[in-house]
Design a protein around this nucleic acid. Structure first.
Lengths: 147, 147
DNA sequence: CTTGATGCAAAGGATTTGCACAAAT
DNA sequence: ATTTGTGCAAATCCTTTGCATCAAG
């Protein structure tokens, strides 16, 4: 087991949960995907391993609670992705309203600018902001071409 | 009927839909709320008028199609609010993770800055962006106090 | 009279829960 | 042993759909 997984194992146990084979498999899928996944996408990848849908839901709920994944809701469908701290403070998602594809937008400069804006919101409204979801809607480059 | 409502009536009829009493009642609730409403919040306000839940869903779907309302999804719950063009190009929502309240954040300067950032995203990724949903998550001022 | 709209109830889809059994400490 | 986790099926919640009827043009 590599270093990272044992880190997660410790986190689970510290909070009174067991790091079972099922949770390990589900977590690895999300880590390896490196993008957002829906419950069904996760379930499809692991269904041959005899893991029930309810277990997927329960694991995701737990991961969320422990703050290791992030849930993104797009048109009533939920997607999940890892929270990664270094160099990727937040993820911006773009949805094409023509082809419905969802694109991850990741750009350090942009992220920094968004963070500055968040600071401003915090100050002006007396809030603590610790997470942001930004969802852009429009037409992607492919759909701009074929019209 | 005031000017605004007759504008909506025309919009509906131009698109082959009737401006019924039910749609009028539902639309007025959203206009008067001046904030985001869930389907249940809308339904509760009008249920005494003998309007079915299905009609609420159908009307919201239609309003969305005609682009007069905007749908916001927060943790699998959908909220609806008017799209207002003048001076309110976008709405930023903040959700307190302690008390679950949702606060509308509206500030012209902030909106302008966000729009600049969106331009940057458009250019760098060759996209057309025409709508943005920004959702901040954190702790509200009330919950910051009572701890 | 023709077309779209409505209310109701049934259907559908996503998510959660109850329960008996299995696994881990 | 005790506690937590799992798979399955049933239950629940939100949303959509089918159908008979109603209303508007």
């Amino acid at each position: 087991m590599d270093k990272n997984l044992s880190w997660y194992k410790k986190l689970f146990e510290k909070n009174g949960y067991k790091f079972t084979a099922q949770k390990r498999i589900i977590l690895l899928e999300i880590i390896n995907a490196n993008t957002h996944l829906s419950v069904n996408e996760i379930y499809d990848k692991i269904r041959q391993k005899n893991i029930g849908l309810a277990t997927v839901y329960r694991s995701l709920k737990l991961f969320n609670e422990l703050d290791i994944i992030k849930q993104i809701n797009i048109d009533t469908v939920s997607y999940y992705e890892m929270k990664i701290f270094s160099g990727k403070p937040l993820n911006i998602h773009f949805k094409c309203s023509k082809c419905d594809s969802i694109i991850d937008i990741d750009n350090k400069d942009l992220n920094l600018e968004y963070i500055k804006l968040n600071k401003k919101v915090e100050e002006e409204n007396n809030l603590d902001v610790y997470d942001v979801n930004i969802m852009l809607i429009g037409v992607c480059s492919k759909c701009k071409e074929d019209k």
